[in-house]
Design a protein around this nucleic acid. Structure first.
Lengths: 336, 336
DNA sequence: GGTATCGTGTAGAACGTTCTCCATTGGTAG
DNA sequence: CTACCAATGGAGAACGTTCTACACGATACC
């Protein structure tokens, strides 16, 4: 019923040449005359031949790259993906995404599955697994890790400079005249080090210290509710902060709600800044000051590194992408 | 350097049986003794064997399903994907996502690529292509289309009941006492029929007619800016509407901004409702009345249908998922 | 005691590519 | 004229599975 796929043998028959010759033409390999090239290309067009990736995978390279997504809900994934596909758009490579879920176990299952499906390389976005596991994967297949700080010797890495990003926010707030600046971070996960929120918190501490100010970190969670709870606690204090820097925009939205409920106007009574510059931060009704990670650049860089690695580079590279501060309406000078 | 993969032959050697026997055990096929089963399973565990999907693809079934995403930014994709993976979590199937982009050309390229990678079936989410193209794909591979209304004879379909959803909103607003209810929709795309916004607009018209009210549809675009512009135009009229139903939440956010700027308070001076129930709609600071599509159910249903189809069903099925109205703070009785 | 029947295991041919040789041709140097 | 070489095309063996066909022994039936 379902008409058989057109194979390289069909093309060869049509063009009156051997399958080996067709294969050479398809791959753009050496040793093909112009005449052969023309004959075969024509036959390919006439028959609508497309190489069968699985068959290809058995012998040579499959032009498929995998991107493992740890949390599909993460608001800047679309940017990263666009960056990846954009960089790869004019090459022969195809990108497939693997929803890995939040659990280490499901992520491991997904990476295995991608390896089994003979991807040429993997981009892992914020993977939650031990360094040993990462290293093991990297011996089986070229790997680029996105969003994890820490030593990468066997794979490449692209990180957002979270220390710098946190510094930008603190500098901005201090520049406006704030001195009591609190930071809301995410509760530490046991088995994953170098995660962005840890580094952001550390960057915040460094920057505060550099300005000679006392730091004030509160760990709740990167959710709207987490931001809300954290802010409520901070605002209930006697010497409540005049500015709150949330480690993620979603938490910053919760902070804004807490300010509303406490009857504080933003930014007059309280300045609020977030991190990630998610889409709604730019909505005029929210207008949240935030740190932009430029997912496009991150994705494009990751793709670039992965292709380089597939095509032979063996030395490890870590690329750090500089974030920028987007100042909007939720930050301003403190009320005197 | 990279240690060779463990193959079925390695397992066979270790267990002292033939490769055919191992294959049977792996596939859970008929004709295996308990003893054989035990021997082989042990060898598999000891060696850490995992079947090579590409080799598998060449002969039998590959347990991979593809989901083509038309627009990665679409806010309820995560729900759909969770629904799909959730339904498939305990089966042998793996899900890979293909970012198809917005353009018909890139979507076609992606579906081709997924077919070439010998997926067992495809879920196409809001594909932008002609019915003929869809039908062509469906002859090559089992297909479930999500989010496109219209006749499906050769593939399965899961649709949100957009007529009903629009009706829910209109009924709700009329119940509150509104009579001048305007609708903001998306500008018609030429080559794709049965797209959700068209059906929503039609559902709105039907519902208004059913209540004996005059309809009032304005087409801008499903963006924050589109909602803003549309609302500004509507609110400038002499007999301005007391309620605006935007066909998408993102546009509803723009409507809210326009209300702010016009000095109208919501919901006293203007009720606003959206569609999609995106994450931020539930944030207390927004609290947007919206129609929830239950992406989980949609995704799970699509996965279910696809598996059924792969495993033999030939009759076409269209499943309609009922939306629900989530009433929040942006709708209320009109000022008398 | 012959012959179906059943249950279990194996041989070996696919599947559609790639890629390493090898054969052929024509040209050129000696 | 011989020897060598470069350029091109082809034969055929992989790659790791699945699956059809069959072999073998044990049991059941007449």
């Amino acid at each position: 019923m379902t008409s058989r796929r057109v194979t390289i043998a069909d093309v060869a028959r049509r063009a009156g040449v051997s399958t080996a010759a067709v294969s050479k033409v398809v791959r753009g390999a050496y040793g093909v005359s112009a005449e052969m090239q023309a004959k075969v290309t024509q036959a390919i067009d006439e028959l609508g031949y497309r190489p069968h990736a699985a068959a290809r995978a058995l012998r040579g390279r499959t032009y498929t790259l995998g991107v493992m997504l740890s949390d599909t809900r993460n608001p800047f994934f679309p940017d990263i993906i666009e960056g990846v596909t954009g960089r790869l758009g004019d090459t022969e490579y195809q990108v497939l995404l693997g929803p890995g879920g939040i659990e280490p176990k499901t992520q491991a299952r997904m990476t295995d599955a991608m390896i089994d499906r003979s991807m040429g390389g993997l981009i892992l976005i914020s993977p939650v697994m031990t360094d040993a596991e990462l290293a093991a994967i990297a011996t089986a297949i070229p790997v680029v890790v996105v969003g994890r700080h820490g030593g990468a010797t066997t794979y490449d890495a692209v990180v957002n400079d979270d220390v710098m990003g946190a510094g930008l926010v603190v500098d901005h707030l201090v520049g406006l005249g704030h001195t009591r600046i609190a930071h809301i971070t995410h509760l530490e996960r046991a088995h994953a080090q170098g995660l962005p929120h840890t580094v952001r918190a550390e960057g915040y501490r460094q920057a505060m210290r550099a300005h000679g100010l006392a730091d004030d970190v509160l760990a709740t969670s990167f959710t709207e509710e987490g931001g809300f709870e954290g802010a409520r606690e901070l605002l209930a204090r006697d010497d409540r902060p005049t500015a709150i820097f949330a480690g993620a925009d979603i938490a910053a939205l919760g902070v804004l709600r807490a300010a509303d409920e406490a009857g504080l106007s933003v930014p007059e009574d309280l300045s609020v800044a977030g991190y990630d510059n998610i889409g709604i931060a730019s909505l005029k009704r929210i207008s949240l000051t935030s740190v932009d990670q430029d997912g496009h650049v991150i994705g494009a860089t990751a793709a670039q590194l992965l292709v380089e690695r597939i095509e032979g580079r063996s030395r490890s590279v870590t690329s750090s992408v500089s974030p920028t501060l987007i100042v909007r309406g939720t930050t301003g000078p403190p009320r005197p």
